[in-house]
Design a protein around this nucleic acid. Structure first.
Length: 664
RNA sequence: GCCACCAUAGCUCAGCUGGUAGAGCAGACGAUUCGUAAUCGUCAGGUCAAGGGUUCGAAUCCCUUUGGUGGCUCCA
């Protein structure tokens, strides 16, 4: 403790961390914590930062308690019960429907159906109306514990329920097909004419659901048991709250989130566009976006040079043989663009930079004295993401990575690995990212030889090295089974944008496999050849995802150093045009991005435009300023400062830029 | 990739049950010269995503394709 990492209460992690492994996920979409060893059960999550000096060690039991608390809440029961009521309404509408599962989730609930005919969102108001009638009926929820045989009788026409009963009876599996530790009892809940296989809990009577605090949100497809090899079911999402006001507030928040959506802001602020003729998932960076990307790159180069990295450059296209050797083709082929053939040789566009970096490492012999060698490249990679997975800038097919590979000996591993984690922290401090979770992604036994390099001994060894490094460094993390890279375990950083959107940003991966496949070696102290370890890392992720995140994080109001336009000069009448142009030139001279607004609108309109464009500083100049050689500064936050010397203003901006300050 | 939905001017959207396109903002031009979030006027802008079909007639109905949205799966 006391190592510089912030300490936080772990109150809401379960509610937000969808990305934890499914085996840890319970019915509510929350996550059990029992898979965490107590000494590792420390989260970096935190709606509420603790007062200075106070330190908290979160115990497994404590977190389980947090978890229980929600499950026992009345709201949880309301949502769970609303799901049943909805299922009843849907089954009345479509009697042939087969029903599957319908748990409460964050903000609401859903129910999955296997329907003979598609359901659309136009059907929702009708179902909602029927739900309100059922609620008004004042039906009691009654629980009954049954034997497996009795349950099969009740659900004899419901194949999905029968499958669930089988799982429960064997005591092996829950409704998601995940292993259970104890053999659960089999119970049903009934209200009105609707009976469901369910462990509860529910409200006592349908009247306890406020009919004005529920709303059906959307229809979506979802695979049975979350497995894409299974049938696609129809999922109806709903939201439910204690009171109508809470529902209203929730809907308002969704509206707010839309305004912060990076796709909208990217359009409004001229950051990037997608063009159908260019292709899906292939963003075009407009000049404003390119400025942000360049600033990030300058930042990364600075920190990386300081940390002893060397820059390298590699081609976009490479012969097939290289990717066969690297293992990308055996393990990663479906994420790669198909090959192009030239003079009888196949070439691939690179999905990652590592094979080329390995070749650079191998281009010269190395002594242990050279290590660690840290090769960095801001290289553009291409991955063939499935069409339905593309999402704005967050998930694209062409991406510029903040990539580097560190080659080191086993003894150096811990220092190097933790050096990368320290780099994360620098970035998070700089961007004021407070809410994140480090996730140690481990291999899965079933994937050996398919998804993962087939060497279990090395997996276990490497995973342990990472675990030890994180524990020694006192960095909180959670573990996720079956989510590693094909060549080794990794630490991914889970973050949440201001919109509440969750995704993986930084990554730090250990590679115990590929250096060997490339015959990489260095001469150790004993004069023997030794294979180095390789750490793949991308603290800033990709330009695309990082900028997408930052757009939402800052709601488009970037700190000065990242703002595409830092200053706008606004002459009040065109009498001051010349003065405004002179100011523009002075700003340019000082390396500040700014321009004078020479349009014919009135000053008020110009201010409004600059404000909507989220320019941090406006310099309003009229006759007074022109005569005294000063400016009137209007800051993006609405504050104002008159009679400011131009030189003072320039010093202020330069200082903000130099320190990459988050304040204006 | 899968399920559902959507696609009208640069942007945001209107166009009822089929009769062959409309507004605001942005843009251009002109007028206005104004003290901290929208000055006025004029003009120009669209093979209604693409292709096929039904029809005397399609932005509107049907099919296919492309792109997007909400999810599922996957992921930096």
């Amino acid at each position: 403790m006391g190592n510089g990492w912030p300490r936080y209460r772990p109150t809401e992690i379960f509610r937000c961390c969808k990305k934890l492994p499914r085996c840890a996920r319970d019915e509510s979409g929350w996550h059990r914590v029992k898979f965490l060893a107590p000494e590792r059960a420390r989260f970096l999550f935190n709606p509420i930062p603790l007062p200075k000096g106070e330190e908290v060690e979160v115990k497994e039991a404590e977190m389980a308690e947090q978890h229980e608390r929600y499950e026992d809440s009345q709201l949880y029961r309301i949502r769970h019960s609303a799901a049943h009521v909805m299922a009843q309404a849907v089954l009345e509408t479509i009697p042939e429907a087969k029903y599957t599962i319908g748990p409460p989730i964050e903000n609401g609930f859903y129910y999955d159906f296997d329907l003979p005919t598609p359901l659309t969102e136009e059907d929702l108001p009708q179902i909602e109306k029927r739900m309100r009638q059922i609620i008004a009926g004042g039906h009691d929820f009654e629980k009954k514990v049954l034997s497996a045989e009795e349950a099969r009788q009740v659900f004899k026409d419901q194949p999905y329920k029968l499958e669930l009963i089988d799982g429960l009876e064997q005591g092996g599996f829950d409704e998601y097909g995940n292993p259970l530790e104890e053999k659960p009892e089999i119970s049903i809940y009934q209200h009105d004419a609707f009976v469901d296989l369910c462990r509860g809990p529910h409200v006592e009577n349908t009247r306890q659901i406020n009919p004005s605090a529920i709303k059906l949100m959307s229809v979506a497809g979802a695979y049975w048991r979350g497995d894409e090899n299974n049938k696609m079911l129809t999922r109806v999402y709903g939201t439910a709250w204690n009171k109508p006001d809470e529902l209203k507030e929730y809907l308002r928040m969704l509206e707010e989130a839309k305004k912060r959506d990076h796709r909208k802001l990217g359009k409004d602020l001229d950051i990037f566009v997608f063009d159908d003729e260019v292709g899906p998932g292939l963003p075009l960076w407009l000049p404003n976006g390119a400025i942000i990307a360049n600033e990030l790159e300058v930042l990364a180069r600075e920190l990386e040079t300081e940390a002893g990295y060397q820059q390298v450059l590699t081609p976009h296209v490479t012969k097939e043989d290289l990717f066969i050797r690297s293992g990308h083709l055996p393990y990663y082929a479906e994420s790669m663009y198909p090959p192009m053939e030239l003079e009888g040789v196949k070439y691939y566009v690179k999905p990652m930079n590592c094979p080329m970096h390995h070749k650079i490492f191998d281009a010269r012999p190395h002594s242990y004295r050279d290590l660690p060698i840290r090769l960095a490249e801001y290289g553009t990679c291409y991955r063939y993401e499935k069409s339905g997975e593309l999402f704005g800038l967050m998930r694209v097919r062409s991406m510029q990575m903040n990539d580097a590979h560190i080659y080191c000996s086993e003894e150096q591993f811990e220092d190097e690995f933790m050096g990368v984690i320290d780099l994360y922290k620098k970035y998070f401090d700089l961007f004021e990212i407070e809410k994140y979770v480090m996730r140690l992604s481990l291999y899965g036994k079933d994937g050996l030889g398919k998804k993962y390099v087939d060497n279990e001994r090395l997996w276990l060894k490497t995973e342990d090295m990472v675990r030890r490094a994180m524990t020694n460094g006192n960095v909180p993390f959670v573990e996720a089974q079956n989510e590693a890279a094909f060549y080794g375990p990794k630490i991914d950083v889970q973050i949440w944008s201001a919109v509440g959107r969750e995704f993986t940003l930084a990554t730090n991966q250990v590679d115990f496999a590929v250096p060997e496949r490339f015959n990489l070696s260095f001469v150790n102290k004993n004069g023997e050849d030794e294979t180095p370890l390789c750490i793949h890392r991308a603290p800033l992720s990709t330009h695309e995802r990082m900028i997408g995140f930052l757009l939402e994080h800052y709601a488009g109001s970037f700190p000065v150093w990242l703002s595409p336009e830092q200053v706008r000069v606004i002459p009040i009448t065109d009498e001051q045009n010349e003065y405004a142009l002179k100011l523009e030139a002075q700003l340019k001279e000082a390396g500040i991005r700014g321009r004078a607004d020479m349009g014919s609108e009135r000053m008020n309109a110009k201010i409004r435009n600059a404000q909507l464009f989220k320019v941090p500083y406006m310099l309003v100049v009229g006759n007074n300023e022109m005569e005294s050689g000063t400016v009137s500064l209007r800051v993006r936050d609405g504050s104002q400062q008159n009679d400011l010397q131009v030189s003072d203003f320039i010093v202020r901006v330069a200082e903000k830029v130099k320190t990459r300050s988050g304040t204006l």
